[in-house]
């Protein structure tokens, strides 16, 4: 059974419903990311799990127990805020020690554990400083240490890296992942940075308008999106309306495509990434052929991007610079059959 389970959770602010019958499962020891566009309800979900708010309906099970109405301070979950939320009037030591003091640990125990945790996040020697005397990255690490020192049953992080510069973000996400794996902490990580999310997670839950559209491993999300929304989200730019036929699918103009994925029936949508379409001079004999005319060519440095007008709509194609085509030229496209995703 999953360690954490959200069952049919409906939640929102006042009468404003944000999460609609949301279901989510997280296994022990895994890091799950909530990924989605701004305003889709990631923070709302995380705060609900943390106990900052209660759902309007539905159930939250943790370790088999009903946690829906367990008060915040009894949950033993660590929370890392986007704003870090360090206590400005306490030293770094006292910030990290706060959770242990609330648990009435002995002062020698506090001393040991705080110093150990500060060493873990590479902040030894900073314990006498105040938060305003630290850089953004250091504050972020204090926030992480403060949440880790209580040995949380669950670690919740709300865009913990979004205030850092790109380089530091990459470094810190590796650190977070290392610590999480070292201690086998179950964690939920909110982000809207796709790369960060794929890099750090065991599982990814893609959220859209208050529901989870797909919960899967990063590579399945990337390569096998379930819905058009997710396909868009992870960079599929070409969508085709197809109808199933003998051994493949036909487009509106009668063109025929084969796909490696198991055959589906009826009308359906297929999608493919720009780099999975080959471009060739008009009339070249290629499999999964689609003819069109170049509308725009865009130089992207390493590669060229072409917007090609075809009978099935506009296609975005990304090609190397071996042969450069120009707008107005007629071309033949070839859609890689193993890269066509059926939705």
């Amino acid at each position: 059974m999953a360690l954490l389970e959200l069952q049919d959770i409906t939640a929102g602010y006042d009468k404003n419903v944000i999460l609609k019958n949301l279901n989510l499962q997280v296994e022990k020891g895994e890091l799950l990311s909530l990924l989605g566009s701004s305003g889709c309800g990631k923070t709302t979900t995380l705060r609900l799990i943390a106990g900052f708010s209660e759902p309007m309906s539905g159930k939250f099970l943790f370790d088999g127990k009903d946690y829906t109405h367990v008060p915040l301070h009894k949950r033993n979950f660590g929370f890392v805020f986007q704003s870090y939320a360090l206590f400005p009037h306490m030293t770094i030591f006292d910030n990290v020690a706060f959770g242990l003091r609330m648990r009435k640990c002995s002062s020698s125990e506090i001393q040991n554990q705080v110093m150990e945790t500060l060493e873990l996040v590479d902040l030894k020697g900073y314990e006498k400083r105040f938060p305003k005397e630290l850089s953004g990255g250091q504050r972020q690490r204090v926030a992480l240490a403060r949440a880790l020192v209580i040995k949380p049953d669950l670690l919740l992080m709300d865009e913990p890296l979004s205030n850092l510069d790109a380089k530091l973000r990459v470094k810190m996400r590796v650190e977070i992942r290392k610590l999480q794996q070292k201690f086998g902490i179950t964690a939920i990580y909110v982000t809207h940075d796709q790369e960060e999310c794929f890099a750090i997670s065991d599982k990814v839950a893609i959220m859209n308008q208050g529901i989870i559209e797909q919960l899967d491993t990063p590579d399945r999300i990337y390569n096998r999106p379930n819905t058009e929304f997710i396909a868009h989200f992870v960079g599929f730019e070409n969508f085709l309306d197809l109808t199933s036929a003998e051994g493949g699918y036909t487009g509106a103009d009668g063109s025929f495509f084969r796909a490696d994925a198991p055959q589906k029936q009826g009308r359906l949508k297929a999608c493919i990434r720009p780099e999975d379409i080959q471009i060739a001079p008009l009339g070249t004999d290629v499999p999964n052929r689609l003819d069109g005319q170049i509308m725009v060519e865009t130089f992207l440095g390493k590669r060229y991007q072409y917007n090609v007008k075809t009978a099935l709509g506009e296609m975005v194609v990304s090609a190397d610079q071996e042969h450069i085509y120009h707008s107005g030229e007629s071309v033949t496209l070839s859609l890689a059959s193993n890269k066509i995703i059926l939705l």
Partner: peptide, 8 residues
């Protein structure tokens, strides 16, 4: 909220 989540 941070204080609460830390057990206060």
């Amino acid at each position: 909220l941070a204080a609460g989540s830390l057990g206060a």
